[in-house]
Design a protein around this nucleic acid. Structure first.
Length: 419
DNA sequence: TCTGGGGTCCTAGGACCC
DNA sequence: TCTGGGGTCCTAGGACCC
């Protein structure tokens, strides 16, 4: 049992934007936004030169342009990112087999068994950074500490392009002055709630009694943060858990919710979701639909079926019914929607012979449509055609969807990729 | 000028069961 | 006379992360 700072957190800096600067030398040293434009859309990633002006991921493009004159918008080379990230992960794997990848561009490493080969954690961190820089060409920050959580905080503090080792006897001193927002699980809302009580730093948080925190943050969050502020690491960062849901959504701009639009969008989303479920050999009992209205007001409606489903048409039908429930609840004659989404949860393994039950009697059940196993078999054969000839080769819906708001197809494909 | 897409987890109320 | 207590599932909303 090691007591040294043997957990490393390695995190590529402004990953998408750094790749763009690597691919296009003219962008180096300049503020870059991946995604969006000065007229609209959303920024998916920003280079550090843009971040110093306040540009951040998730920000509307027009706002980013306002904050940072001279910002260059690039569309994004989404088909390239996975390869660069995989290269980096391969380098991490050279240091230790104990690598836990937690997203496309970051991973935890347990290097307790590697120090006899590569030296102390600080040397290992430096080696990783040097190799990633020289062999891939990207900046990466590394934090080292006794626990995963603390290592992650350290890498955030080390950014950009830095290395920070927190020695065990310096942990309290390190955490004390840091803003609470650096803790995993403290977002803007929690940060504001804490600030209202005069709690700004992790030190402030550690001095607050647990009961108070649980009262205004909820039991789980309160006790969790209490433990973190005292540098206990109660939550295991989950290792390779199975997906609990599969979903897809699509921003639409601002469109009137016509039957044609709803059917077409939900049909495409169901095709994506159901296809991914079948590819994983899974199916789910709960179908959830999200409908977003102007001003970011969104509602969800869900329905749990008696048996798991993964057939495109079945998911489409349930989703359509749920979406109209949500829209009808708005009590307006003409309803505008800005986003539709479908998610399937309550997942189980898809058995070879699928018993996809018809919906209960009150549901609109199309008399002529193939049911249950027949639908699933039909989907499987269309999956096979798509595997050979591409996604658009065959489907239930004509690809007539007009120009929609939203991100390039390659971004969705990157996002839905398994790590 | 009007906000992406993929997820996870927590909370709270109600239904239902024993 | 007038209503326990615990557990589980479902639904809806929301915070958060990358």
């Amino acid at each position: 049992m090691s007591t040294g700072p043997t957990i490393l957190h390695a995190d590529l800096d402004a990953f998408y934007a750094s790749v763009e600067q690597l691919l296009e030398p003219a962008l180096r040293g300049r503020p870059v936004a991946v995604g969006g434009s000065a007229r609209g859309g959303v920024v998916l990633a920003a280079s550090y030169e843009a971040k110093v002006h306040g540009v951040a991921g998730g920000m509307p493009g027009w706002r980013a342009a306002q904050l940072c004159p001279g910002l260059t918008f690039v569309r994004g080379s989404f088909h390239r990112y996975q390869g660069f990230a995989d290269e980096v992960m391969r380098i991490l794997g050279d240091v230790t087999p104990l690598v836990q990848r937690i997203s496309i561009d970051e991973a935890f490493l347990d290097v307790s068994g590697s120090t006899h080969l590569f030296g102390p954690p600080a040397a290992i961190g430096a080696l990783i950074r040097e190799r990633v820089r020289s062999e891939v060409g990207l900046p990466i920050s590394v934090g080292a500490a006794r626990t995963k959580h603390l290592a992650k905080v350290a890498s955030q503090v080390a950014k950009p392009d830095g290395l920070l080792v927190v020695e065990p006897d310096g942990e309290r001193e390190f955490l004390e002055p840091l803003p609470v927002g650096l803790l995993w699980g403290v977002g803007p809302v929690t940060e504001r709630r804490l600030a209202e009580r005069g709690i700004h730093t992790i030190g402030d948080l550690a001095r607050t009694d647990r009961a108070t925190m649980e009262r205004f943050l909820g039991r789980a969050t309160g006790s969790f943060l209490h433990a973190l502020a005292h540098n206990e690491d109660p939550r295991r960062v989950a290792t390779s858990t199975r997906a609990r849901s599969v979903g897809a959504q699509s921003a639409l701009g601002r469109r009137t919710a016509s039957p044609e639009l709803v059917r077409e969008v939900l049909g495409h989303l169901a095709e994506r979701v159901a296809g991914r479920l079948r590819a994983k050999g899974r199916a789910g009992r709960t179908v959830t639909v999200r409908v977003r209205f102007p001003a970011m007001r969104s509602v969800t409606r869900s329905h749990t079926l008696s048996a798991p489903v993964s057939a495109t048409l079945t998911i489409t039908e349930v989703a359509e019914r749920l979406a109209w429930q949500a829209i009808a609840d708005q009590e307006q004659r003409s309803v505008e929607v800005t986003l539709l989404g479908i998610s399937v949860s309550n997942l189980t393994r898809q058995e070879a012979v699928q018993l996809e039950l018809p919906l209960p009697p009150p549901d609109p059940w199309r008399p002529g449509s193939p049911t249950g196993a027949a639908r699933w078999a039909l989907d499987r054969s269309m999956d096979a055609v798509r595997d050979r000839f591409g996604r658009s080769a065959v489907g239930y819906l004509p690809v007539t969807l007009g120009r929609r708001a939203g991100v390039p197809e390659e971004f969705r494909e990157l996002a839905e990729r398994e790590l």
